[in-house]
């Protein structure tokens, strides 16, 4: 028996929106301490990891660890049937081949339930090394989303460089080029707009904007986003959801020459 009750459907909806365009099918690993998910996109260029702690739920119960293989698109369709402020109960009986979603309105006058078939998903879990990053940036998630979408209009990949000056995002395209620089700011009046930059070593690395755009779909989950990068290592973009958990993305860098040999 597995059972978890979310106080609001909205959170689960936002989480799904932030994952489903990157990954089609994924296993939700449900253990005593909480729910985790780790999955790569089908080109194996990026990875998404989700943690939802058990204590973040209204109710959380796992008798035996369960791995729920779910098609995220189907789940997202079901979640659309819930009102944003409905409570959502997800449960599965031991040995069952479906998982149940139960939506209840706040004043308990409406209740709906949906059953979703589970799938066997053959996927391998990657070991993510705990590493020191050369640079860490914390900024408003809306700001990150804006930079990524602005630069996407000019080209396919962005060069992120961190130096004493600040963080520079540069794009080069067929029609021209562009760049955005962010500087450290404490946000005296509005701490939520602060930009923190920690640089252990200057670093410069290119990444595909296509993926960064998909990562930014997580912006509604968290007011702040963290970017961590190192030379010749994947980029980490983390959206932390207060005491509930986090949604984090890793993206493999572009390597080698900027242009293919002519």
């Amino acid at each position: 028996m597995f059972e978890a009750r979310f106080p609001e459907a909205l959170l689960l909806k936002k989480i799904l929106e932030a994952i489903k365009d990157l990954v089609q099918d994924a296993n939700f690993e449900c253990t005593e301490s909480g729910i985790t998910l780790q999955a790569m996109d089908n080109a194996h260029v990026s990875l998404v990891t989700l943690l939802l702690r058990g204590e973040g739920f209204d109710l959380y119960r796992v008798d035996k660890p369960e791995s729920l293989g779910i098609n995220l698109n189907s789940m997202s369709k079901i979640m659309r049937c819930a009102a944003n402020n409905d409570t959502v109960t997800v449960d599965k009986l031991e040995g069952a081949d479906t998982v149940r979603f139960l939506f209840e309105s706040p004043n308990a006058d409406r209740m709906s339930e949906f059953h979703l078939k589970l799938m066997d998903i053959d996927s391998e879990t990657l070991e993510i090394p705990e590493s020191m990053y050369h640079a860490e940036i914390e900024l408003p998630s809306a700001e990150l989303r804006r930079i990524v979408s602005d630069l996407s209009t000019m080209g396919d990949s962005v060069r992120i460089s961190v130096s004493k000056e600040g963080v520079r995002f540069t794009v080069r395209g067929d029609e021209g080029s562009g760049s955005v620089i962010l500087r450290q700011s404490t946000g005296v009046d509005k701490p939520e707009e602060a930009i923190h930059i920690v640089m252990n070593e200057p670093v410069e690395q290119s990444f595909a904007l296509k993926y960064l755009n998909l990562f930014c779909k997580a912006a509604p989950l968290s007011a702040r986003a963290q970017i961590k990068l190192s030379k010749d290592a994947p980029l980490l973009v983390n959206f932390s959801m207060n005491n509930i958990g986090y949604l984090a993305y890793y993206l493999a860098p572009k390597i080698g020459d900027e242009d293919i040999e002519e």
């Binding site: 080109a43 194996h44 260029v45 990657l126 595909a208 994947p234 993206l251 493999a252 390597i255």
Partner: peptide, 8 residues
């Protein structure tokens, strides 16, 4: 020149 995540 896009690398794969499983290289890392």
């Amino acid at each position: 020149n896009q690398s794969r995540l499983d290289n890392f």
